[in-house]
Nucleic acid binder design. Structure first.
Lengths: 204, 204
DNA sequence: GACATTAAGCGAAAGGCTTTCGTTTATCGT
DNA sequence: ACGATAAACGAAAGCCTTTCGCTTAATGTC
């Protein structure tokens, strides 16, 4: 086929289809992506540089789909808002998270998110390299919880004997999504409380 | 070739070679693994079920290489010990972490680690579903920092303009490994302080 | 001791994947 | 008018994982 009158492929449609594949199957490949939008594999390379760029585009897409607004409020509220927004983005597409950990962040929206984090932490009173340490810590939390969303319902499946404390903890858990939600809120509280505590001990 | 007098392949050597490949190249494949131990690809399937099992074996190996001991001490010390040990395991093989996030944990050693975590948290005073929430939080934290070790030296590369707070934070950072170490210790303090704080507020 | 079964190597090949290349033809700019 | 660019295609190269059938040494059974 020659060049069509209107392009058959748009980057938007490409990303949408790729995201659908990831949501359904936990992964995507160019042959499957091409089949879904009714196009040949090789045509895709006329629009993006390759698989990696598609992944990065998906990162940008889901972050954009989860907008947040920081108005006024104190640093604590800002921090909660940012972390929740980040987590919500991955909650909508849980299986995307594992595919993104191998790649460097380049997306502008995500950088802006970290900028907002840095501002909030400075206004909280953190200085010097503590700002970056705090960002790294928050990042680890957020990424870890995003990955948790992609985990199977039963994350740890201990044999029936030999792990009593773990088994007991698991027996107290409700359904998987509820457990994940409770754990995230719990973790966020710990994070905030820990930051407060560190601020107190360094300021004094 | 027929069956040799002594097996050419041992699982130990297999895992060692695979780990070397991951350390060197950030990934491994069966052809490369076979070449390294001087054997054909297909022979490997006489010893393991496939790629996934090799990954799981590597997980077990690095955890075993980073033994820890919990004697006496309070829950706080136990928690520090466990998390440090986990992180040290991945610090020795940073590039393995991203390869493991897609897989469920089955390794016995790792399950034992979580069991110890559950015991420590119960002795701290956490009850019911809070135990699992705390485990998830600690898990997110540890996994996030393990992944951080595999990240490129410059994790965030903001353009020279538009992200002043982030740029300033980055300018205060020393060399990459030092930054990672500082951030981990910082995060561990936050985690511990946050847990203390939550204990206080629920017990009162 | 003879003999069937298992273990552990091999090569070949199937079927996936990403990416590159050459070809075709419509559109756009000069 | 016409050359350059854009956007499709098919074919193929070169990875990858896994399966299959073939060979032969070791092991266990009658």
């Amino acid at each position: 086929m020659a060049r069509p009158l209107v392009p058959l492929i748009s980057i938007d449609a490409l990303v949408t289809a790729a995201l659908e594949l990831v949501d359904e199957a936990g992964d995507f490949s160019l042959p499957k992506l091409a089949k879904r939008i009714g196009v040949s594999q090789s045509s895709i390379y006329n629009h993006v540089s390759g698989r990696e760029e598609i992944l990065e585009l998906m990162r940008g897409r889901i972050i954009s789909e989860s907008p947040y607004e920081i108005r006024g409020g104190d640093w604590e509220a800002a921090l909660r808002t940012i972390v929740r927004s980040y987590r919500d983005a991955f909650a909508r597409h849980p299986r995307l998270a594992p595919l993104l950990v191998l790649q460097t962040v380049q997306d502008h929206q995500v950088l802006a998110l970290y900028e907002n984090l840095a501002v909030a932490l400075e206004s909280a009173g953190f200085r010097g390299r503590d700002v970056l340490s705090a960002i790294s810590t928050i990042d680890s939390f957020a990424l870890g919880f995003a990955l948790d969303l992609a985990a199977p319902d039963v994350v740890w499946a201990p044999p029936s004997e030999g792990f009593p404390a773990l088994a007991s903890a698991l027996s107290n858990a409700g359904p998987a999504d509820e457990r994940g939600e409770a754990a995230f809120e719990f973790g966020l509280e710990i994070l905030i409380a820990g930051l407060h505590s560190l601020l107190r001990s360094t300021v004094l």
